[in-house]
Design a protein around this nucleic acid. Structure first.
Lengths: 199, 199
DNA sequence: AAGTTTCTAGGACAATCGACCTAGGGAAGT
DNA sequence: ACTTCCCTAGGTCGATTGTCCTAGAAACTT
């Protein structure tokens, strides 16, 4: 088995464990046990825990970028793409109710630890933020696209947090529906329409 | 110095450290150092870490209950009381941007650890949930009071999560203002008005 | 086939963790 | 004065942590 394969296996195992157990609560031994490696061999691939964390964040960034690019390449409208984002809460409901949002919980843990990589983890949020901003701009809301994107991001974070605490499926469904309705009610910004722009 | 005093000092130190560093990342030694106790003496007051966690949660529950009761006893309207809750995000902005919401982050950590006390921590949310539900009922929204309360709770959780990740004061202000406007737009439920109730 | 690089296994390290024990200080009551 | 009991200090325990080292197997090159 190639080193690249083993490395990827380690990253994916660490990715899952960091999500399900938390970064600090996951030990070298935990990851090695999942992949089926000795702790010594493990050290060959990653020398420090921070190194694994960096690789996991990078891996998540590229996976997320891939997902967003795939949505972008799809045939739907900008509104449909935003709906795809909102409905992550439904698709991943079981995991979110058990462990929360992978991005939000990691950022929170690293913030508390005052970890060097806390800003890198926040880049995952920035990825979603910029993508959402793009979609709202495509919807004709160039003026407040970033604010609208942050609003959707904020709501999905809030739903995820309460879903973990209360484990209430009906609540998640209700709030997702409310977000859908909110999105449908968003109209193109009149200020940005060509005929109203002051030239 | 009385034992009760020492015990309270330990609880308050643990409360702060659990919030700022996280439950797992806080050690016996950390708490003892803050209070100025030896680890041995510490053991006299609390035998296990879970015992401290239980005391901290209980302490937070009673402090929160006290705060909500004080708001309830105040002279304002139900809408003003709800606004008091929303504006926690402004009052505690600095700490929230550094460490997130004390309730949300603790619930998340305990959920990941699958800790025995995770449901006890969630009771802190229930406290806010029930109180908010009461306020919306007093506002004339008996029918969907719980849903509206959960909505506000959800939003404040979302704002706290993104505030920690982005450290953007303007975002917090904007979203708090949006919540205020949303609240002001809530009208009494027509179904629950006496003249429309079917008797 | 020989040599060289890549990968793996398992042990060892100091440090820290939660947990536990015991000896003694000190105030209170008799 | 003396006993009793609440409180404190410091040491110790095994387990686990992240980190590191070395010997050897496996794979590739020539």
């Amino acid at each position: 088995m190639g080193a690249a394969t083993t490395r990827l296996q380690i990253i994916e195992a660490a990715d899952r464990l960091f999500y399900e157990k938390g970064f600090e609560a996951t030990s070298f031994a935990d990851i090695a046990a999942v992949v089926g490696l000795s702790r010594g061999n493990f050290y060959y691939h990653f020398r420090t825990k921070d190194e694994i964390l960096g690789a996991v964040i990078e891996h998540r960034l590229s996976k997320t970028k891939e997902m967003l690019d795939a949505w972008e390449a799809g045939a739907g409208t900008a509104a449909e793409r935003i709906r795809s984002f909102i409905h992550i809460l439904i698709v991943n409901q079981a995991k979110i109710m058990a462990y929360g949002c992978p991005v939000g919980t990691l950022c929170n843990e690293l913030a508390k630890l005052d970890h060097i990589a806390k800003n890198d983890a926040a880049k995952l949020f920035t990825l979603f933020r910029d993508w959402l901003s793009c979609q709202f701009a495509a919807l004709g809301r160039e003026t407040d696209a970033d604010g609208l994107g942050m609003h959707i991001l904020m709501r999905s974070q809030g739903v995820a947090a309460l879903a973990t605490a209360f484990r209430d499926e009906a609540f998640v469904r209700r709030e997702v529906e409310d977000m859908d309705q909110w999105l449908a009610a968003q109209q193109p910004d009149p200020i940005s329409r060509p005929n109203t722009v002051s030239v």
